[in-house]
């Protein structure tokens, strides 16, 4: 059976987390649908009205990194796989 190799997705591994941020947001892929904004239990996501990305949408931004608990709910609903979610710093240290 001939099989096309899986195209490697960009793997975010060694982001400089200074200061720590719980989310990496591929804003160029965001379509501004607001499903993540609705799903976030801590209301720390909003569309960035000051930015229009190459797709023509206002991309989402993390308003308050300290308020984000890395619960991953935003990533579960995003149809465009925009989010990389990192464990809270405390957990990463232990």
């Amino acid at each position: 059976m001939t099989t096309r190799l899986a195209d490697p997705a960009p793997r975010v591994t060694a982001v400089e987390h200074t200061p720590f941020t719980p989310l990496a947001i591929a804003t160029d892929r965001c379509k501004g649908c607001e499903l993540c904004v609705t799903a976030c239990p801590h209301h720390v996501l909003e569309l960035d009205q000051a930015v229009v990305n190459a797709l023509g949408y206002h991309p989402v931004r993390l308003v308050d990194p300290a308020g984000c608990t890395s619960c991953v709910l935003c990533a579960r609903v995003c149809p465009d796989a925009v989010f990389t979610v990192f464990a809270p710093r405390k957990e990463a240290r232990s």
Binding site: A9, A81, A87
Partner: peptide, 20 residues
């Protein structure tokens, strides 16, 4: 330097890296 944070979620490999 602090250890890099553990990744809880990222784009799956089998999802081609392009906008739909």
């Amino acid at each position: 330097a602090p250890a890099p944070p553990r990744i809880l979620y990222q784009r799956p490999r089998a999802l081609v890296d392009k906008s739909t």
